[in-house]
Design a protein around this nucleic acid. Structure first.
Lengths: 157, 157
DNA sequence: GTCAATTCGTTGAATGTGCAATAATTTTAT
DNA sequence: ATAAAATTATTGCACATTCAACGAATTGAC
């Protein structure tokens, strides 16, 4: 076996934080998926609408960082959403390179319909956490995010 | 050099567990991405190899559950990996419908080269957790996963 | 034992994604 | 003031993904 001894444990996956984090995220996605389908919305569109609705307008680069969708993908994604009347592009006054994406009424209505479903799933996911534990869970996730942000490897040229 | 837990902004997003979980997973993915690129490996291929290497052979459905990749996608993905000599398909004796995917030498060598990088990133991500906190983080992630599994909505017919 | 229902894996067709290249604008250095 | 460098958004192109439909094999009800 060419695997170093340190990893040659039966439960390595169950102990590997990136794997544990990823499968939680995936399972949450799967739970929302049927509701998104009803609205003919992809997961990425939902993330875009959710972010726009709760945090406000973003240009493409900011939206990309907030949703983890590549800007080239986001450009076409926003185009499709604009065609459907969910969002609109507005060229910025201050910086003529940037395009602010704003949520439209139809987009907000989808958010309003889906948000209760998203909250149900969140509540389900954390139902086994006590009132003391829940804030700890959140703070741990925020802490890991910040550590990852601060120590992000620079993209290799 | 510990990182404070709380952001100043009182944003809804900062309190929404599915969002917090997703962005942590995405940032971890981004950190491994450059190393995967060196090996000409997609994130999904890496997950497949990692699971096969550490947990053993899987048929497609099991592999799909373990990696959160749809079986139709996985079918072609495994085909590409087989073309590159990373894995091999073996028709099961006991059940002639199923195909077991086994990792080959070339696949294992990639895992051996990448695993140290993955562990570095994991160590970086949890560097601000104390010896007491780390097991709690893992147990919370496992608990959420189990709860989500047990309460998963049935896929709508 | 038979037949319907289920499970597993694959594939056609439509759609989405990502890299690299590009144009337009802004910032930085001198 | 000017030119080089950086940033933003878009697009061509190649490739990956998904849904739905399918064939093959197995399971379950009777």
């Amino acid at each position: 076996m060419s695997v170093p001894d340190e990893f040659d444990e039966p439960q390595i996956l169950e102990d590997f934080v990136p794997y544990l984090a990823h499968r939680v995220g995936s399972l949450m996605d799967q739970n929302i998926a049927p509701y998104l389908k009803e609205e003919n919305l992809s997961m990425e569109m939902w993330r875009v609408l959710f972010v726009l609705s709760h945090v406000g307008d973003h240009n493409l680069v900011a939206l990309s960082k907030a949703t983890s969708v590549k800007t080239s993908t986001l450009s076409r994604l926003v185009g499709r959403m604009a065609d459907r009347g969910l969002v609109s592009r507005i060229r910025s006054d201050s910086d003529n390179r940037t395009v602010d994406v704003v949520i439209l009424r139809a987009g907000q209505e989808i958010v309003d319909r889906l948000t209760p479903r998203a909250l149900e799933i969140r509540d389900m996911a954390v139902q086994d956490f006590s009132e003391d534990e829940l804030p700890v869970l959140k703070s741990y996730l925020r802490r890991m995010y910040r550590t990852l942000l601060n120590n992000a490897a620079k993209t290799p040229g």
